[in-house]
């Protein structure tokens, strides 16, 4: 569940992340797949980078998020036929 920074109901255990250059508080399960789901991103056509490093797409569930992580989504955009 995404909360804004000023949301008083934000659980204390949430993480402050930088997602696509925007600061965002996040209080869901601290793994990449859960973050993608919470943000409505489709993990089949997005690559994820944490602090500059591109993740292996097969590991999204195993990779945990930490306070202050900088997260970028890199979208596959191919055009017409796949």
């Amino acid at each position: 569940m995404l909360k804004t920074r000023n949301d008083r109901t934000r659980p204390r255990l949430g993480l402050n992340l930088s997602v696509q250059g925007k600061k965002q508080a996040y209080s869901g399960p601290p793994d990449v797949r859960s973050l993608l789901e919470a943000l409505g991103e489709n993990s089949t056509y997005v690559n994820v980078r944490i602090n500059g490093e591109v993740l292996d797409r097969r590991d999204f569930e195993k990779i945990s998020l930490h306070e202050g992580d900088r997260i970028d989504f890199l979208y596959f955009m191919g055009g017409g036929i796949v």
């Binding site: 089949t44 056509y45 690559n47 596959f76 191919g78 055009g79 036929i81 796949v82």
Partner: peptide, 16 residues
């Protein structure tokens, strides 16, 4: 360097 391999066919929707 960024997108190492193409996504599996059918996973990324086309513009069509």
């Amino acid at each position: 360097c960024v997108f190492e391999e193409p996504p599996p066919p059918g996973t990324v929707p086309s513009c069509a």
